[in-house]
Amino acid sequence: MIDPMAAANLYRLAFGFIPAQMIHAAVRLRIPDLIAGRTLTAGELAERTATHAPALRRLLRGLASIGVLEEHDDGFRLAPAGEPLRSDVPGSVRPMLMPYFHETMWASWGRLTDCVRSGQPSVETVTGGSVFDLFAADPELGAEFHAAMAVSGGAEAQALARSYDFGDVRTVVDLGGGNGALLAGILGHHPHLRGILVDTPVGVAGAPDTLTAAGVADRCDIVAEDFFASVPDGGDRYVIKSVLHDWEDERCVTLLGNCRRVMSDTARVLIVEVVAPPVVDATTDPFLTVSDLNLMVLTHGRERTDEEFTELLRAAGLELTGIGAPLGFSGYRVIEARTAAGPAQ
């Protein structure tokens, strides 16, 4: 006999795409911004969003049923749980959600079964190219992706700046740092540091504003180049956050090898990523497996275990020196490595 509670739970999981799309529509229509601090009727919101009032009311009631909004006699209000969806509040999750609400992302996840069968990212079946080709071809989506990475970078920057000893460090090179949010956080916490930010031209487009706003622009150089081809020399710490998990082993070894070739004996690589456990069970943070599947759908990369990171480092002529504690709720950790004995690979 099937357990009715187990069946009900599976229904909720299987139809989880519906609440996700409800939140997607609310964010795209900027509903959380429009009703922040006020109560509006469905008709009033329809005028402001150029939508069909009866259809919008049904969406609003759906959002109320999952706790994002509250429905009252005089209209709808933003619930506390919906506050992080506003675009104008510190800690907003909106930038992190936007690129993953894009129709191509939804279509790619719709081909998950094909991805499992072939072992190839389903985004390539949908678009004919890599997800990074997609970001380059669609400037708006590319900007949303880099904005999402900036949110992630900012969230871990303070934790990394506080937990890692930068006392003897002079120059930090951030490889793949996008708009510089992570590097700005580190430099802001340690006035003696200088920084070098390296990413694609699209990636660093917003960096001058970010670094200026943080008051560290005069201590940071911006380099728009392909770090798979080369990386700047002279760094004491080479920070690589949320980059290696996007790529297959060979490309990771290339990037790490580029670092190895320019590192001094005292320099270190700091990989900032989630470290997957060797065995997953009911106590494992679901974020890890969801992130790993998202990488499978969109990239040739994956979340890696400590043993897999060790193997990457060894292949690049580096050796692991330690793995730090998680940096906040995200589970990111600092994986430190130094040059190994012997010639660079």
Score class of each variant (00 low, 15 high):
A205K: 11
D114H: 11
M96G: 12
G188W: 11
R333H: 04
L295I: 10
E124G: 06
L182G: 06
P277K: 09
G180V: 01
Y11W: 04
L312E: 03
A26C: 14
G67S: 00
V131T: 08
P277V: 09
M98K: 06
R111A: 14
P80G: 05
F76I: 02
L270D: 13
M149S: 11
D138Q: 06
A55S: 10
G178F: 00
G342A: 11
E225S: 15
V243C: 04
G91K: 04
R58D: 12
E250P: 01
S108D: 03
V68C: 06
G67R: 01
A344N: 09
A161T: 14
Q21N: 09
P286V: 15
A325W: 00
P54Y: 06
I196Q: 12
W247T: 01
R57P: 09
D3R: 03
F166Q: 10
V204E: 09
L327T: 07
L85W: 08
L78M: 06
G215L: 09
V198G: 08
T305I: 04
T51F: 00
S130P: 05
N258Q: 07
L34S: 15
D285K: 06
N258I: 02
L327H: 08
L40Y: 01
E83Q: 08
R86P: 08
V169W: 09
G235D: 14
G91L: 00
K241V: 07
V269L: 09
T289N: 08
G154M: 00
A340N: 08
M5I: 14
Y332D: 11
I196W: 08
P286N: 15
S65C: 03
A55P: 01
T49N: 05
V253M: 00
L183N: 05
G322T: 08
C252H: 00
V198F: 07
L293P: 07
T339M: 03
G37N: 08
C115Q: 15
R58C: 06
G167Y: 00
R12F: 00
V173R: 03
L59S: 07
A14L: 07
A155N: 01
T51P: 02
T39H: 05
L255T: 04
L197S: 12
S118Q: 10
I35S: 09
C115M: 15
A229T: 13
V275I: 14
S130I: 03
R117M: 13
L293H: 11
D292H: 13
H72V: 03
A161R: 13
L255H: 02
G67K: 00
T212Y: 03
V216T: 13
M149T: 10
H245T: 07
A36N: 11
G301I: 01
V280S: 15
F17W: 12
H24C: 10
S242C: 07
D292W: 04
D209N: 08
A64M: 03
R12Y: 00
C115E: 13
A214Q: 11
